[in-house]
Design a protein around this nucleic acid. Sequence first.
DNA 1: GCTTGACCCTGACATGATGTAAAGGTCCAA
DNA 2: TTGGACCTTTACATCATGTCAGGGTCAAGC
Lengths: 128, 128
Amino acid sequence: MNIGAASKASGVSQRMIRHYEQIGLIPGAPRRDSGYRDYSEADVHRLRFIANARDLGFAISEIGTLLALWSDQNRASGEVRSLALAHAEELGRKARALEAMRQTLLTLAQQCHGDERPDCPILQRLED
Amino acid sequence: MNIGAASKASGVSQRMIRHYEQIGLIPGAPRRDSGYRDYSEADVHRLRFIANARDLGFAISEIGTLLALWSDQNRASGEVRSLALAHAEELGRKARALEAMRQTLLTLAQQCHGDERPDCPILQRLED
DNA sequence: GCTTGACCCTGACATGATGTAAAGGTCCAA
DNA sequence: TTGGACCTTTACATCATGTCAGGGTCAAGC
Protein backbone atom coordinates (compact mmCIF):
# COMPACT_ATOMS: atom_id res chain seq x y z
CA MET A 1 0.00 0.00 0.00
CA ASN A 2 1.34 3.44 -0.97
CA ILE A 3 1.48 6.27 1.53
CA GLY A 4 -1.58 7.91 0.02
CA ALA A 5 -3.72 4.84 0.62
CA ALA A 6 -2.28 4.39 4.12
CA SER A 7 -3.09 8.01 4.84
CA LYS A 8 -6.70 7.64 3.73
CA ALA A 9 -7.14 4.38 5.60
CA SER A 10 -5.67 5.72 8.84
CA GLY A 11 -6.74 9.33 8.86
CA VAL A 12 -3.13 10.49 9.33
CA SER A 13 -1.88 12.93 6.71
CA GLN A 14 1.00 11.90 4.48
CA ARG A 15 2.96 14.74 5.93
CA MET A 16 2.55 13.41 9.45
CA ILE A 17 3.23 9.79 8.49
CA ARG A 18 6.61 10.86 7.11
CA HIS A 19 7.16 13.03 10.14
CA TYR A 20 6.42 10.23 12.59
CA GLU A 21 8.87 8.07 10.71
CA GLN A 22 11.51 10.77 10.84
CA ILE A 23 11.26 11.34 14.57
CA GLY A 24 11.25 7.62 15.22
CA LEU A 25 7.70 7.28 16.50
CA ILE A 26 7.10 4.57 13.92
CA PRO A 27 9.66 2.36 12.15
CA GLY A 28 10.63 3.34 8.64
CA ALA A 29 8.39 1.70 6.09
CA PRO A 30 10.07 -0.71 3.66
CA ARG A 31 10.74 0.78 0.24
CA ARG A 32 10.00 -0.56 -3.20
CA ASP A 33 12.55 -0.29 -5.99
CA SER A 34 11.05 3.04 -6.90
CA GLY A 35 11.72 4.35 -3.42
CA TYR A 36 8.02 4.44 -2.59
CA ARG A 37 7.11 3.52 0.99
CA ASP A 38 5.06 0.34 1.32
CA TYR A 39 2.58 -0.09 4.17
CA SER A 40 0.85 -3.15 5.60
CA GLU A 41 -2.49 -3.42 7.35
CA ALA A 42 -0.62 -3.59 10.64
CA ASP A 43 1.06 -0.28 9.83
CA VAL A 44 -2.31 1.30 9.16
CA HIS A 45 -3.56 -0.14 12.42
CA ARG A 46 -0.73 1.52 14.27
CA LEU A 47 -1.35 4.82 12.50
CA ARG A 48 -4.99 4.71 13.49
CA PHE A 49 -3.91 4.09 17.07
CA ILE A 50 -1.78 7.22 16.88
CA ALA A 51 -4.61 9.26 15.36
CA ASN A 52 -6.98 8.17 18.13
CA ALA A 53 -4.44 9.05 20.80
CA ARG A 54 -3.90 12.47 19.21
CA ASP A 55 -7.65 13.00 19.22
CA LEU A 56 -7.57 12.43 22.96
CA GLY A 57 -4.93 15.13 23.26
CA PHE A 58 -1.91 12.94 23.98
CA ALA A 59 1.41 14.49 23.00
CA ILE A 60 3.73 12.64 20.64
CA SER A 61 6.05 11.68 23.47
CA GLU A 62 3.18 10.16 25.44
CA ILE A 63 2.04 8.32 22.34
CA GLY A 64 5.50 6.79 22.09
CA THR A 65 4.99 5.33 25.54
CA LEU A 66 1.47 4.19 24.70
CA LEU A 67 2.72 2.46 21.56
CA ALA A 68 5.37 0.66 23.56
CA LEU A 69 2.79 -0.50 26.08
CA TRP A 70 0.42 -1.46 23.30
CA SER A 71 2.92 -3.80 21.72
CA ASP A 72 4.11 -5.18 25.04
CA GLN A 73 2.17 -8.37 25.71
CA ASN A 74 3.34 -8.34 29.31
CA ARG A 75 2.30 -4.80 30.07
CA ALA A 76 0.49 -4.03 33.29
CA SER A 77 -2.79 -2.25 32.61
CA GLY A 78 -2.05 -0.12 35.66
CA GLU A 79 0.70 1.62 33.75
CA VAL A 80 -1.62 2.58 30.93
CA ARG A 81 -4.24 3.65 33.40
CA SER A 82 -1.97 5.97 35.36
CA LEU A 83 -0.65 7.49 32.14
CA ALA A 84 -4.24 8.17 31.08
CA LEU A 85 -5.16 9.60 34.45
CA ALA A 86 -2.14 11.88 34.52
CA HIS A 87 -3.05 13.12 31.07
CA ALA A 88 -6.67 13.63 32.12
CA GLU A 89 -5.48 15.76 35.00
CA GLU A 90 -3.36 17.85 32.69
CA LEU A 91 -6.34 18.32 30.38
CA GLY A 92 -8.41 19.38 33.35
CA ARG A 93 -5.82 21.95 34.35
CA LYS A 94 -5.81 23.44 30.89
CA ALA A 95 -9.59 23.41 30.63
CA ARG A 96 -9.94 25.16 33.98
CA ALA A 97 -7.40 27.80 32.96
CA LEU A 98 -9.31 28.53 29.77
CA GLU A 99 -12.60 28.60 31.62
CA ALA A 100 -11.22 31.06 34.15
CA MET A 101 -10.11 33.39 31.35
CA ARG A 102 -13.52 33.04 29.76
CA GLN A 103 -15.32 33.92 32.98
CA THR A 104 -13.15 36.97 33.49
CA LEU A 105 -13.94 38.14 29.98
CA LEU A 106 -17.66 37.53 30.36
CA THR A 107 -17.73 39.45 33.62
CA LEU A 108 -15.89 42.36 32.07
CA ALA A 109 -18.10 42.30 28.98
CA GLN A 110 -21.14 42.42 31.19
CA GLN A 111 -19.83 45.58 32.82
CA CYS A 112 -19.21 47.16 29.43
CA HIS A 113 -22.18 49.00 28.02
CA GLY A 114 -20.93 48.22 24.54
CA ASP A 115 -22.24 51.18 22.61
CA GLU A 116 -20.72 54.15 20.82
CA ARG A 117 -19.15 55.63 23.92
CA PRO A 118 -15.40 55.06 24.34
CA ASP A 119 -15.62 54.24 28.04
CA CYS A 120 -14.76 50.56 28.48
CA PRO A 121 -14.03 48.47 31.61
CA ILE A 122 -12.40 45.78 29.50
CA LEU A 123 -9.61 48.07 28.36
CA GLN A 124 -9.35 49.56 31.83
CA ARG A 125 -8.76 46.12 33.24
CA LEU A 126 -6.05 45.38 30.71
CA GLU A 127 -4.24 48.54 31.75
CA ASP A 128 -3.74 47.65 35.37
CA MET B 1 15.09 52.82 31.25
CA ASN B 2 16.99 49.84 29.85
CA ILE B 3 15.20 46.81 28.50
CA GLY B 4 15.96 44.82 31.65
CA ALA B 5 14.20 47.35 33.86
CA ALA B 6 11.31 47.61 31.42
CA SER B 7 11.01 43.85 31.44
CA LYS B 8 10.90 43.68 35.23
CA ALA B 9 8.43 46.55 35.46
CA SER B 10 6.08 45.11 32.85
CA GLY B 11 6.38 41.39 33.36
CA VAL B 12 7.26 40.88 29.68
CA SER B 13 10.51 39.04 29.02
CA GLN B 14 13.30 40.86 27.22
CA ARG B 15 13.07 38.28 24.50
CA MET B 16 9.39 39.06 23.93
CA ILE B 17 9.84 42.82 24.09
CA ARG B 18 12.37 42.58 21.27
CA HIS B 19 10.08 40.18 19.45
CA TYR B 20 7.04 42.46 19.71
CA GLU B 21 9.15 45.26 18.33
CA GLN B 22 10.33 43.12 15.45
CA ILE B 23 6.84 42.03 14.40
CA GLY B 24 5.56 45.58 14.69
CA LEU B 25 3.23 45.08 17.64
CA ILE B 26 4.99 47.95 19.41
CA PRO B 27 7.01 50.79 17.91
CA GLY B 28 10.78 50.46 18.01
CA ALA B 29 12.23 51.97 21.16
CA PRO B 30 14.59 54.92 20.72
CA ARG B 31 18.27 54.02 21.03
CA ARG B 32 21.04 55.59 23.02
CA ASP B 33 24.49 56.14 21.54
CA SER B 34 25.45 52.71 22.79
CA GLY B 35 22.63 51.13 20.83
CA TYR B 36 20.72 50.29 24.01
CA ARG B 37 16.94 50.58 23.79
CA ASP B 38 15.44 53.25 26.02
CA TYR B 39 11.95 52.87 27.47
CA SER B 40 9.54 55.36 29.02
CA GLU B 41 6.80 54.78 31.58
CA ALA B 42 4.27 54.88 28.77
CA ASP B 43 6.14 52.06 27.04
CA VAL B 44 6.03 49.99 30.20
CA HIS B 45 2.34 50.75 30.49
CA ARG B 46 1.76 49.41 27.01
CA LEU B 47 3.82 46.31 27.74
CA ARG B 48 1.78 45.62 30.83
CA PHE B 49 -1.38 45.97 28.72
CA ILE B 50 0.02 43.33 26.38
CA ALA B 51 0.96 41.03 29.25
CA ASN B 52 -2.54 41.28 30.69
CA ALA B 53 -4.14 40.55 27.34
CA ARG B 54 -1.87 37.53 26.89
CA ASP B 55 -2.89 36.32 30.33
CA LEU B 56 -6.47 36.39 29.11
CA GLY B 57 -5.47 34.22 26.18
CA PHE B 58 -5.63 36.82 23.42
CA ALA B 59 -3.45 36.05 20.43
CA ILE B 60 -0.89 38.59 19.26
CA SER B 61 -3.01 39.58 16.30
CA GLU B 62 -5.98 40.28 18.56
CA ILE B 63 -3.76 42.27 20.88
CA GLY B 64 -2.76 44.42 17.94
CA THR B 65 -6.41 45.31 17.48
CA LEU B 66 -6.88 45.89 21.20
CA LEU B 67 -3.88 48.22 21.29
CA ALA B 68 -5.29 50.21 18.40
CA LEU B 69 -8.64 50.52 20.16
CA TRP B 70 -6.91 51.36 23.40
CA SER B 71 -5.12 54.33 21.91
CA ASP B 72 -8.13 55.46 19.89
CA GLN B 73 -9.91 58.11 21.92
CA ASN B 74 -12.93 57.84 19.63
CA ARG B 75 -13.33 54.10 19.90
CA ALA B 76 -16.74 52.59 20.44
CA SER B 77 -16.74 50.32 23.49
CA GLY B 78 -19.02 48.00 21.52
CA GLU B 79 -16.07 47.08 19.34
CA VAL B 80 -13.96 46.07 22.30
CA ARG B 81 -16.87 44.21 23.78
CA SER B 82 -17.59 42.13 20.71
CA LEU B 83 -13.91 41.30 20.34
CA ALA B 84 -13.85 40.12 23.94
CA LEU B 85 -17.05 38.10 23.53
CA ALA B 86 -15.79 36.43 20.36
CA HIS B 87 -12.61 35.51 22.18
CA ALA B 88 -14.57 34.21 25.15
CA GLU B 89 -16.54 31.97 22.83
CA GLU B 90 -13.34 30.62 21.33
CA LEU B 91 -11.99 29.93 24.80
CA GLY B 92 -15.23 28.14 25.62
CA ARG B 93 -14.90 25.97 22.54
CA LYS B 94 -11.37 24.97 23.47
CA ALA B 95 -12.27 24.34 27.09
CA ARG B 96 -15.19 22.13 26.10
CA ALA B 97 -13.01 20.16 23.71
CA LEU B 98 -10.45 19.52 26.45
CA GLU B 99 -13.16 18.62 28.91
CA ALA B 100 -14.65 16.12 26.46
CA MET B 101 -11.27 14.44 26.05
CA ARG B 102 -10.88 14.35 29.79
CA GLN B 103 -14.27 12.75 30.32
CA THR B 104 -13.54 10.09 27.73
CA LEU B 105 -10.28 9.28 29.45
CA LEU B 106 -11.85 9.15 32.89
CA THR B 107 -14.57 6.82 31.66
CA LEU B 108 -12.02 4.53 30.06
CA ALA B 109 -9.81 4.60 33.13
CA GLN B 110 -12.76 3.64 35.26
CA GLN B 111 -13.31 0.57 33.10
CA CYS B 112 -9.67 -0.40 33.42
CA HIS B 113 -8.88 -2.54 36.43
CA GLY B 114 -5.40 -1.07 36.49
CA ASP B 115 -3.44 -3.93 37.93
CA GLU B 116 -0.75 -6.32 36.70
CA ARG B 117 -2.93 -7.89 34.02
CA PRO B 118 -2.30 -6.71 30.45
CA ASP B 119 -5.99 -6.46 29.57
CA CYS B 120 -6.83 -2.76 29.09
CA PRO B 121 -9.92 -1.03 27.68
CA ILE B 122 -7.96 2.18 27.16
CA LEU B 123 -5.62 0.61 24.64
CA GLN B 124 -8.53 -1.24 23.08
CA ARG B 125 -10.32 1.99 22.50
CA LEU B 126 -7.27 3.56 20.88
CA GLU B 127 -7.12 0.66 18.44
CA ASP B 128 -10.54 1.14 16.91
C1' DG C 1 43.45 53.42 34.41
C1' DC C 2 42.17 48.68 34.54
C1' DT C 3 39.44 44.83 35.75
C1' DT C 4 35.25 42.61 36.71
C1' DG C 5 30.65 41.58 36.58
C1' DA C 6 26.26 42.91 35.15
C1' DC C 7 24.02 44.50 31.47
C1' DC C 8 22.94 45.10 26.43
C1' DC C 9 23.18 43.92 21.25
C1' DT C 10 22.15 40.67 17.14
C1' DG C 11 21.55 36.30 15.12
C1' DA C 12 20.62 31.70 15.18
C1' DC C 13 18.58 27.33 16.64
C1' DA C 14 14.96 24.86 19.25
C1' DT C 15 10.32 23.64 20.68
C1' DG C 16 5.42 20.80 18.70
C1' DA C 17 2.44 19.57 15.27
C1' DT C 18 1.25 20.66 11.05
C1' DG C 19 0.67 22.85 6.28
C1' DT C 20 2.37 24.05 1.85
C1' DA C 21 5.28 24.50 -2.04
C1' DA C 22 8.95 23.42 -5.21
C1' DA C 23 11.56 20.39 -8.12
C1' DG C 24 11.87 16.10 -9.61
C1' DG C 25 11.01 10.78 -10.25
C1' DT C 26 7.29 6.83 -10.91
C1' DC C 27 3.21 4.45 -12.26
C1' DC C 28 -0.68 3.29 -14.97
C1' DA C 29 -4.22 3.66 -18.30
C1' DA C 30 -5.60 5.19 -22.71
C1' DT D 1 4.02 7.51 -25.70
C1' DT D 2 1.90 10.79 -23.13
C1' DG D 3 -0.72 12.83 -19.38
C1' DG D 4 -2.21 12.92 -14.93
C1' DA D 5 -2.06 11.11 -10.49
C1' DC D 6 1.03 9.63 -7.40
C1' DC D 7 5.48 9.48 -4.91
C1' DT D 8 10.20 11.42 -3.27
C1' DT D 9 13.07 14.99 -0.50
C1' DT D 10 13.99 19.58 1.07
C1' DA D 11 12.79 23.72 2.79
C1' DC D 12 10.02 27.42 4.68
C1' DA D 13 5.97 28.92 7.52
C1' DT D 14 3.12 28.96 11.53
C1' DC D 15 2.91 30.84 17.11
C1' DA D 16 4.99 32.26 21.24
C1' DT D 17 8.79 31.55 23.64
C1' DG D 18 13.50 29.94 25.47
C1' DT D 19 18.33 29.73 25.19
C1' DC D 20 22.88 30.17 23.58
C1' DA D 21 26.93 32.27 21.37
C1' DG D 22 29.86 35.97 20.29
C1' DG D 23 30.48 40.48 21.02
C1' DG D 24 29.93 45.52 22.84
C1' DT D 25 28.83 48.80 27.13
C1' DC D 26 28.58 50.52 31.63
C1' DA D 27 29.66 51.37 36.38
C1' DA D 28 31.92 50.34 40.61
C1' DG D 29 35.96 49.22 43.10
C1' DC D 30 40.92 48.65 43.18
